[in-house]
Every structure is written in C-alpha cells, then in structure tokens.
C-alpha cells in the first residue's frame, strides 16, 4: 500500500488536474446539449484536432505558446465549417440522427488525422518555464500540471461570471431552459447557439493542446476522452455549468483515486456511478431546468 501524506497530496493534485481537463471538454458539450438539445459525439474528435494542430504549430511556428493560441482557433474554424455544412441542418433531426451523423464524423476525422499526421504518438514539450517541479502543499509537483489546473480554474471562473452576471449569460440560461419563450422575447437563439458552439469548440481545442505534454497526441485520444466527457455531462445534468463542474470533479477524482486504491475496478466504478445516477436522478445531479 502506497502511503504517506505526500503521496495522497500528489494524487489529489492529479485528480484536480484531470478534473479540469474534463471540465474544459464537458462544458462546451453540455451547453451545446442544453441549449439546442444537440448531441455532438464528435466533440472528442475536435479535442484531438486541437492536439494535432497544436503539435504542428509548435513544430513550425513558435513552440508551445503558439500551439496554445492556434490550436483553439483552428478547432473553432473547423467547428464553424461543420456547423454550417452539417450541424445546422441536423438541429431538429432528433437525437438519434445527431448521434449517427456525429458518430460518422468521428470516423472521418480520425482517418483524416491518421492521413495527415500518421499513426504514431506525437509529443509536445511543455514550455521551459513550466518544465520543472514546484513546491505546492509541501510536495514537489510538476509545474506544468499546476498550469493545466490553473487554466481550467480560470476558464471555470470566467464562464461562471459570463453565465451568471451578464446579459448574454442570462440569454443563454433562458435559451437552455425554454428556447421557444426566449425567442418570443426577441432573442435569436440560433445565433446564440452558434456563438456557444464556437466557444465550446475552442475550449475543446484548448483542452487538446494542453493535454499533449501530458498524454501525447494519438488518433485514439478523442474516442478515449469522449466517454468520460459524456459521463460528466450526464452525471452533472445537461446544460448546467455547475453540473459540469461537479461531474468533472466526481469523475476526475474517482478515476484518479480508483486507479490507486482499487486498480482494475477503477474504470468500472465510473460506469457504476453513471448507471446509479441515471436510475435515481435521470436528469443528472444539477440539471439546468430546476
């Protein structure tokens, strides 16, 4: 049994960092889901595209920081193209057709990535300023992981302020709750959706870039992260910021601590939790529609 306070503090920081990564992915998915009931299974594939664009940007332009800027922008641009060609059309086609079309997109995007970047895992070095360990809560912990956690927290706070304190945030919450009535107050819900979709894509791209120094970029990374992200969204409750935060923390910590405490059972635990939530609270723990 591994022990000692240092060990558990490190695991706690790992859990927090993984939770923040999940949060960056699930928040876009959940608001898109809640605002226009759109199921985008290709969200994980967008995350992967962010990672690969980041790798190329870093290699050809200016290292990590250029990746951090270009990755999200490129994914947002790809998201806009997808929106205009496919997603807008599928808006009212029902969850099954949306699942199918975006499932098809996963296949297409994965193969495009394999053609452009090959099948091998690609790495991205963290910036020199973040390469060493730092002292935190009395343990030595990689600075880059602290950075990832901080990015997640900053985004979380920024979104929370925008959603809860601004007019556009109120419009989004109104649209999530009742899009027909929001439209009757003169709100262009379609445009709002487009905006949210763009932000969601950019955040997926951002998550992709910051994940590469931790896990490398592989063609399977999008599909691997999709399932935990969907679980976060469903556990938390569709369309809810607080739900995405809570869900990310639950899933992030269960996976991290589970892997240490009960290796082997850890991955099953998350599914058991999802099943339990679906049975007892089908709308999730903190649904957007009170």
């Amino acid at each position: 049994m591994p022990g000692g306070a240092d060990f558990w503090i490190t695991q706690f920081l790992n859990g927090l960092q993984f939770s923040m990564l999940l949060f960056l992915l699930s928040i876009g998915l959940t608001v898109i889901f809640g605002l226009l009931h759109f199921v985008n299974l290709a969200h994980g594939a967008l995350y992967m595209l962010g990672a690969y664009v980041g790798v190329s940007a870093a290699a050809h332009l200016g290292g990590y920081w250029s990746a951090l800027v270009l990755g999200p922008l490129a994914v947002m641009a790809i998201g806009i193209v997808l929106y205009l060609t496919l997603i807008k059309r599928m808006r009212r086609a029902g969850p099954m057709n949306q699942v199918l079309v975006t499932f098809g997109l996963i296949f297409v995007i994965v193969d495009i990535v394999r053609i452009l970047w090959g099948d091998v895992a690609l790495g991205l070095a963290e910036p020199a300023s973040l390469s060493g360990p730092i002292q935190i809560f009395g343990v030595s912990y990689p600075a880059y992981r602290v950075f990832v956690t901080a990015v997640g927290l900053v985004v979380m706070i920024a979104l929370s302020v925008v959603l809860n304190r601004t007019q556009i945030g109120a419009m989004i919450r109104a649209g999530v709750e009742n899009d027909a009535m929001a439209a009757c107050l003169g709100i262009n819900v379609e445009r709002l959706f487009f905006l949210v979709f763009c932000v969601g894509c950019a955040l997926a791209g951002l998550a992709g870039v910051i994940a590469v120094p931790l896990f490398s970029a592989t063609p399977g990374m999008g599909t691997d992260i999709l399932i935990p992200t969907l679980i976060v969204v469903v556990i938390g409750g569709l369309g809810s910021l607080n739900g995405a935060i809570l869900g990310s923390l639950i899933v992030g910590f269960i996976q991290t601590f589970g892997a240490v405490v009960t290796p082997g059972l850890a991955s099953v635990l998350v599914y058991v939790l999802l099943a339990a939530v679906l049975i007892t609270k089908p709308a999730g723990l903190l649904p957007a529609r009170g």
Binding site: N97, L100, F103, G104, I106, F107, V110
Partner: peptide, 13 residues
C-alpha cells in the same frame, strides 16, 4: 473507417 463515416452521414442526410 473514413468511408464508413461518409456512408453513414450520407445515409442520414
């Protein structure tokens, strides 16, 4: 798989 994806999207559309 790319082919499967395209076929699927085309069928739904």
């Amino acid at each position: 798989h790319m082919f499967i994806g395209v076929v699927l999207i085309a069928t739904v559309l």
